[in-house]
């Protein structure tokens, strides 16, 4: 099989995802995959490449362009004992299935007083910086963070992509996976993945860089913008800690609080719009729970409250940049 783990070979983010899904399909005969063009084509980005050849249409179902039905049928499968991986061709299109996610699937366990659970993973390519324009660039995680009953993860490395996807596919609850499509094939992120079965548990943040002058909390593609800013600041003698949340719901507050005890300064960065975005959630929780550790007003950098425009200068204008992060970080450090 093309996705078999090979020792010593460095693998990209996309391969991590592919291996995770293929391995879980192998070990869990109850797992069904559904989505648009996920069969013969292997999905718009190739994440499901090879699945239909191995498991056939019974378990790898090409769906009509009907996001609401895709999610709703998946809910019915879960109700009747199956687990389902749903691919959104782009995470932007998830809005077409919104009601079936937030009102049907996310509430199922709650409204049945625990009788029914929904082991459903909804995953799809997300994120801007690639010229995808308004409808192929979104990070709409806040819609769902505000809808109780859905877990949300955003891995940023091949290792996490594979380990978290496997954990999500084994999780008894609905899990939304924001796959940053600009990381899918990034060469500099390639790494050797463990040969043995492993998972990365949901709800645990990862400290991607240690430092004691400032804590930057981020996730997704912005992890790399923040790491670059941290490198810039290192040259000026400042040590910035970068926390990759990886999991938004549940949120690993403890790791952030521990970091703030040391750095006393907080900057949160995400590429979603500002108002009611997840960066704001992190800020308010830390204002409530870590106020006494803070020596500077906590701050955030987000996309402007605009859609994501198409051509490059416009797109970059509205999104967080390394320069912005560096500048804001310096202000906080020197506060």
């Amino acid at each position: 099989m093309a996705t078999a783990t090979e020792t010593g070979v460095k693998k990209n983010f996309l391969t991590g995802l592919k291996e995770a899904i293929a391995e879980e399909m192998e070990s869990n005969p109850n797992l069904i995959c559904m989505g648009e063009d996920i069969g013969a084509l292997g999905g718009a980005f190739g994440v499901t490449d090879g699945l239909i050849a191995r498991w056939g249409r019974e378990r790898v179902i090409d769906m009509p362009i009907s996001e609401a039905a895709i999610v709703g049928v998946a809910a019915g499968l879960c109700l009747n004992g199956k687990s389902v991986m749903v691919e959104m061709q782009f995470i932007d299109f998830i809005s077409c299935g919104f009601d079936q996610i937030v009102n049907m699937t996310a509430t199922y366990h709650y409204r049945t007083a625990g009788e029914v659970n929904m082991p459903m993973v909804i995953r799809g390519p997300a994120g801007a910086y690639g010229g995808g324009a308004l409808y192929h660039s979104q990070m709409n995680e806040a819609w769902f963070a505000n809808s109780p009953g859905i877990k949300i993860i955003v891995p940023s490395t091949p290792y996490d992509a594979k380990g978290m996807m496997k954990a999500a596919l084994r999780n008894p609850d609905p899990v939304l996976v924001y796959e940053i499509k600009d990381l899918y094939r990034r060469r500099d992120l390639e790494e050797v993945l463990p040969e043995e079965d492993y998972i990365v548990p949901l709800g645990k943040a990862s400290v991607r860089r240690e430092g004691d002058d400032l804590t930057i909390v981020t996730y997704g593609q912005n992890v790399y913008h923040c790491l670059e800013a941290a490198k810039n600041l290192e040259k000026e003698g400042y040590h910035v800690e970068v926390i990759d949340l990886r999991s938004l719901v549940p949120l690993d507050e403890a790791t952030i609080i521990e970091s703030l005890k040391k750095t006393n300064r907080l900057l949160v960065v995400n590429e979603a719009p500002m108002t009611c975005g997840f960066a704001g959630e992190v800020l308010s929780r830390m204002s409530e729970k870590a106020f006494e550790y803070l020596d500077a007003p906590p701050a955030r950098i987000t996309r402007l409250d605009t859609p994501v425009p198409w051509v490059k200068p416009l797109e970059l204008f509205v999104l967080p940049s390394v320069e912005q992060i560096t500048e804001k970080a310096l202000k906080l450090i020197k506060y």
């Binding site: 709703g72 049928v73 809910a75 019915g76 499968l77 879960c78 009747n80 009601d99 409204r111 049945t112």
Partner: peptide, 25 residues
């Protein structure tokens, strides 16, 4: 689930996909 009655919601037609899903399973 045990009595094979799909849990209704307020979203009309909202459980038809689930009905499709249970038969698929």
């Amino acid at each position: 689930r045990a009595k094979k009655i799909i849990h209704s919601t307020s979203m009309l037609a909202g459980t038809i996909p689930a009905a499709v899903g249970v038969t698929l399973a």
